[in-house]
Structure formats: structure tokens, C-alpha cells
Design a protein around this nucleic acid. Structure first.
Lengths: 328, 328
DNA sequence: TAAATTTGTGGAATCGATTCCACATTGGTT
DNA sequence: AACCAATGTGGAATCGATTCCACAAATTTA
């Protein structure tokens, strides 16, 4: 394998001169520069990343920690991240936790050891232990999807998205509205979306019975189970259901169909997240679109700005848009 | 940052001795070993990967090239890959081509420069240029999803999966069967699935009219368009449709619903790929499950065996299972 | 008992780049 | 003309690990 030593010999200069040419740093005569560039081109020489990063302490790698790659939000974010990062010669080192919170912390340590230049954490929670570890790490880090104090983040306006969606139901005449959420340790999806729902209901003088509120996890089956529980135990039946994710909504729809409950005539329903498949449900599901790919791109810009000590916005809140379909 | 020099000083040995302890190589007295281990534990010292890989020429990183991360097949494969690789201390460097074939070749070069220990290519084609580049690379490489000569691969039995699915339609009494495929440059999904369909039809003495065959790409919209084209132009209407992916099938279903064509009464339909959402379609979609996560794990085992020069199976063909639902 | 082998250890070389220092030459300023 | 600054270059040191060589001591074998 060709090294800088070979290039120096072929170009009749020293390794320092070759390095100066490659890095465009320090004085180099035009003559020498041309000879080096010619040799580099002819040989296809590319410097060793290991040797460079041992000396410069930079790896041109960004570590990305995510709970799963198999759902739309993380996969879209990663697509956006990759698109922006590769423009600047950076690569993604993937760290998939499989929804295991302990692994988030393990991976932070591992990525530090791997000397990644920055870390993107697609977060499902912001608990104290995790936040403490992030502070100790001393590596540029962006959290996507959760608000975190003293840390760069790209978030979605979960609160207002859920409020607006809830208001839409109310404007359509619904007063008895069920809610399918997730655990509130997920502050974005679990806490703020629920708060948005409850606040909008309260602002309209509408009560929410305990029997109308259920929790799922981030999959379709638990949405179905949640809908079943709500309808099995509620004396006063709700006429609408808001779910905090499309998957939960789709699961709920599945249950409704099984029970012969018509959407939206007997039960209006909506989710959040603009799953690709939502438009193909029957009826097509009303949802909120979050522009996850753009969130990834913004997160990439943020981390790159931090690495290069350029000015940048430490808190980015992504917009959203309601997609009104036939399920309401 | 702590280095091996510091550890050596604290443990009162040389750097060679510390290295012998860390790598369990060569003679070390029990006394010295204990002192080194104690110091390593107390300080939390972890060796620099850059320095190690400069010397050993190993990075413990596997490059993964994929067309998109946003569909089930690649995302499940990556999940399986990551699960197996992390057991052995390897990480994934992600290289997303966004369906741009030229980028596959660019990324092969980039991963070589990055000195990854192995490459997994989740391939959409096996054209000559790509195969040539792979041979030139001289890095352990596994292709997942396409058969490739002289290269390690994990494939699916596309031919027999499509034949069996087609046979199932025929056993249900269908004789006029439409086909929605993709471009045949994708030999696995495009060529072999089509061949499986045509061969099974021929084996049963059934003809396939040109008007019944259409091509899409790997998305839902093109499935809808393909179904529309078939039904718009076919004089003799098919009573069943096989699509080579679930997404194409779901798109076709969408069109059928719009036209008031009942599934499966007026048109039976199936796909391949066991998309999560297929079970939630109305009616639930018949499909073929390919165990993509396991394919990822097998691919990881294969590449790791190759890296470690252990004996292994160069060609792995994954099994499949029909999932019969209400769309047939 | 002497020779051969094993055990244990430290230090230099090495991996392949970058960076800094020292030196020489050329050009500009006082 | 002398001094200072700019230009250009090569080589050593450095980054932080691994590996090999040389040496010494202890143990085993003939």
C-alpha cells in the first residue's frame, strides 16, 4: 500500500512538503506542488485515516445512537443525517440500542473510546443518569426528539401539534375524546403530547374520563390493545380517539374494524408521525407530519457547526403540518 | 487523556508489559499482571483505537452499504447485522446510497480508505462494473439479497418463494393472474421472482397475457399505478395479482379499493416481504416472510468468519414461509 | 555441573500521518 | 549596505499503541 513516503520519493520532495500540498498549509513552490499533485493523481494515493486521526485527533466520524432503525422516525432522521454529513466528508457509526436504555450509556462510552468527532442521540428519554453522562463526555452532542437543558437539540413541537390536532377534533364536534399515549418518561411523545391534549380539552371546557386514557408502546399491537381496553371499560363511549403515534392509531383502527365500529362515523381517529402507510389505511388516517429527514439534516448541521466552532442555533424546534384525511 | 505510558508508570512496568497484559500475549509475572490490572481498573483506561489500528491494521468496523434505510428489508437486515457484530466488538459504518448505483462504487472506495475490516453490501443489482470493483477491493465482502459469483452472499430463495405463492393462487382456482414486478436489473426481486411466477404458470398450462404484466419501483404509489394500468388495458380481466413486494401489493390494493373492486372476491392479491403493516391492511395481505433480521445475523457471521479466516459457508440461502391471510 | 530452555522484562522500532524547528534563499525596508 | 521579513524546504519529534529484539534470571535437561 502506498504511503506518503512513496509519494515524497516519487515527487522528489520530503514528506513535510507532501503534507503541505495535501493540506494546503505553509509555503510550497509551484513547481513542487505540481509534481506532488501529479504523483498523487497517478498513484491514486489516499492518506491513512488512522495515521491522520492519531495525530490530529479527528476521525471524521459521527456516532449515531438510536433506539431502533426499523421505524420511520429514526430511519428518516438517519437518512437526513447521512445526506448532510456526507457532504462534509463525515461518516455515520451506527449504535442501535434496541430500546435498551442502559445501552444508550454504554454506547456513549464506546463512541468516546472510538473518538468520534460528535454524537447524535435520537433520544427516547432524558433521565438524570443519561444527562449526567452526556455532560461528562465532553464531546459535541445533539439530542434529536427530546428537549434537554444545556445540550444542543432538535425537537418537534409535540405540545402544540397535539393541541392543534385535538382542537381539530373539537371543531368537528367531538366532545368525548379518548387518548392513547406512551410512557411519560418519554417527555416528548409521552408527556408533552398528553399535556397538549389535556390542555386543549380543558381550554374547551371538556372533561377527559380516566377510562378514556390508555398507554401503549411504540407498536401497532399495543394500539389495538389500548383501544380494546378503552372501549371495553368505558361506560360513556368516546366518539373520537387521538393516539400519539400513527402506529398506535393504526392498531386502534384494526380493533375498531374487528368490532364493526365505523371510522369516522362511529369513531374518528388520528395519530402523529405521518407513517408512509397511513395514507393507505382504510379510511386514510389523519396525522401530523414532522419532517424527520429535515430534522436529521438540521441536527447534522448543528453538530458540524459545533465541531468546527462555528456559530449555530443550539435549540431548533421543527415545524409540523396537519394532514387531514378521512379518518376524522 | 490517559495513555499506556501513564499506566506503565503507575504500575511500575514498561509499556510492553502493559501491552502484554492487555492483550494476554507473552510472559508476564503474576505480580506485574495484578498491578497492571488494578491500575487499568482504577483509572478506567481504554487504549486508543486509532493507535491500535495504525499498528495492527484492524479497525473493528464493518462498512454497510445500503440503498435506503427507510424500508423494512434493509432496516431489518441492519438490525440483525448490528446485533451480531456488537457481540464481537464490531461497529457499523453506514453508507446510504439513496438508490444511486454510482454511490455503491464510491462507497466501496471510501470504505477501503477507511480501512474497514469487512463490507456488507445490501445489493439491488450485480452489474459488471460493481462486481469488478468488488474483486479489486481485496476486502472481505458479503452481498446480501443478490446472488453473486465468487463472492460471499446471503440470499433469499426468490424463485421458489414466488413459485410457491403462485401455486397457492392456482390451487385456489385462479387461472388469470396478473403480475407486478420491478426492473430486472435487480436479479433477485426483478428477475428471479418473475421467473418463478412465469414458470409456475407454465407448469400448470396457464398463459400470462402481456396486458397482465406491469413494472413498478420499490414504493406503494407505483404499485397503485401498475394495478391501474393492468385493469385499464386488459380486455380479459385477471382474478388475481401477485406483486413482488408488499409495498407494490399495498399500492395495488389502494387502487382496487378506489375502484370498488372487492378483495379477495373480485381480485385476490399477495406480495412478498412481510411488511409489518401488511397484517393491518383490509383485508390483511397474504405475503412471504423472509426473516431479514436473521439474514443480517448470518451475513455478520459470514463476514466475521472471513475476517478471522475461520471456515464458513460462502453461500447462504435463507428459507421463507408463506403467510396466508384474507387477501386470497 | 554445564548447557539449553523457559520465563520475564524494558526499550527501540514501527505503523503513517502532521507539525514544528532549523536552516537557506530571496525580497523588501531602512 | 545592513537588517528584517517572506518564502521554501527537510528532518526530527510526536500522536499511542504493538511487536520484536536483547538481555538477565530461573529452571530444566543431559
Amino acid at each position: 500500500m502506498i504511503t506518503i513516503k512513496d509519494i515524497a520519493e516519487l515527487a522528489n520532495v520530503s514528506r513535510s512538503t507532501v503534507s503541505r500540498v495535501l493540506n494546503d498549509s505553509g509555503y510550497v513552490s509551484e513547481d513542487a506542488r505540481k509534481r506532488v499533485e501529479k504523483v498523487v493523481k497517478e498513484t491514486g494515493y489516499v492518506p491513512s485515516e488512522q495515521a491522520k486521526s492519531l495525530r490530529t485527533k479527528k476521525t471524521k466520524v459521527i456516532g449515531v445512537i438510536l433506539p431502533t432503525i426499523q421505524t420511520e422516525t429514526p430511519s428518516r432522521i438517519v437518512t437526513g443525517l447521512g445526506r448532510e454529513l456526507s457532504k462534509h466528508g463525515y461518516q455515520i457509526l451506527l449504535a442501535n440500542t434496541d430500546h435498551d436504555k442502559e445501552k444508550e450509556i454504554e454506547y456513549l462510552d464506546l463512541l468516546k473510546v472510538r473518538q468520534v468527532d460528535g454524537i447524535i442521540l435520537i433520544a427516547t428519554n432524558t433521565d438524570a443518569k443519561l444527562m449526567k453522562k452526556i455532560k461528562e463526555l465532553n464531546i459535541p452532542l445533539t439530542v434529536i426528539g427530546q428537549e434537554a437543558e444545556e445540550v444542543m437539540c432538535v425537537t418537534y413541537d409535540d405540545y402544540h401539534a397535539q393541541r392543534d390536532l385535538t382542537r381539530f377534533f373539537i371543531q368537528k364536534g367531538h366532545e368525548k375524546i379518548a387518548f392513547i399515549g406512551v410512557d411519560e418518561s418519554d417527555r416528548a411523545v409521552g408527556h408533552f403530547r398528553k399535556k397538549g391534549f389535556l390542555d386543549e380539552m380543558a381550554a374547551n371546557g371538556l372533561s377527559v374520563e380516566k377510562a378514556w386514557v390508555e398507554k401503549g408502546i411504540f407498536d401497532i399491537d399495543s394500539g389495538r390493545e389500548a383501544m380494546e381496553k378503552i372501549l371495553s371499560r368505558a361506560v360513556k363511549k368516546p366518539t373520537a380517539t387521538v393516539a400519539v403515534t400513527d402506529r398506535l392509531a393504526i392498531g386502534a383502527m384494526s380493533y375498531l374494524k374487528k368490532q364493526g365500529i365505523k371510522i369516522p362515523q362511529d369513531m374518528a381517529i388520528a395519530g402523529i408521525g405521518a407513517s408512509e402507510i397511513s395514507q393507505y389505511m382504510n379510511p386514510p388516517l389523519t396525522t401530523v407530519d414532522y419532517q424527520n429527514e429535515k430534522a436529521g439534516e438540521e441536527g447534522a448541521k448543528q453538530i458540524l457547526a459545533s465541531i468546527e466552532s462555528s456559530p449555530f442555533q443550539k435549540k431548533i424546534i421543527m415545524g409540523y403540518r396537519l394532514i387531514i384525511r378521512e379518518s376524522i
